[in-house]
């Protein structure tokens, strides 16, 4: 399979990902796309506190606690 046709999927987490976490994420992503056509990249950002942000093509799946807190904060303002 030509790697140039594969889509880069970036995981951003507050801690380095464990294999279990990677499997969970890949399992979930398989429901919306072909993971064989994905190249996974990892990045650590401690400001996220918890959860994960996935950048998938033009799609941004933000499941971080930081964003949840920011939404709560905006709601209070």
């Amino acid at each position: 399979m030509d790697s140039s046709n594969k889509e880069i999927v970036k995981f951003i987490t507050p801690f380095p990902m464990t294999e279990l976490q990677k499997n969970i994420v890949k399992n979930k992503l398989s429901r919306i796309g072909n993971i064989d056509q994905m190249i996974f990249q990892e990045e650590v950002d401690t400001s996220l506190i918890g959860g994960i942000i996935i950048i998938f093509g033009e799609m941004l799946i933000d499941c971080s606690l930081r964003t949840q807190l920011d939404k709560i904060k905006e709601g209070m303002i």
């Binding site: 801690f15 429901r31 919306i32 918890g50 959860g51 499941c63 807190l69």
Partner: peptide
Amino acid sequence: AAKLLHERIDISKQDQLIEQLLEEAIGKIE
């Protein structure tokens, strides 16, 4: 709250968070 959460989040809680939050997000996308 962020500081408190930061102190209390460990690997197992991170596993749960990824499972729950990603499930909700993927469900919405589907």
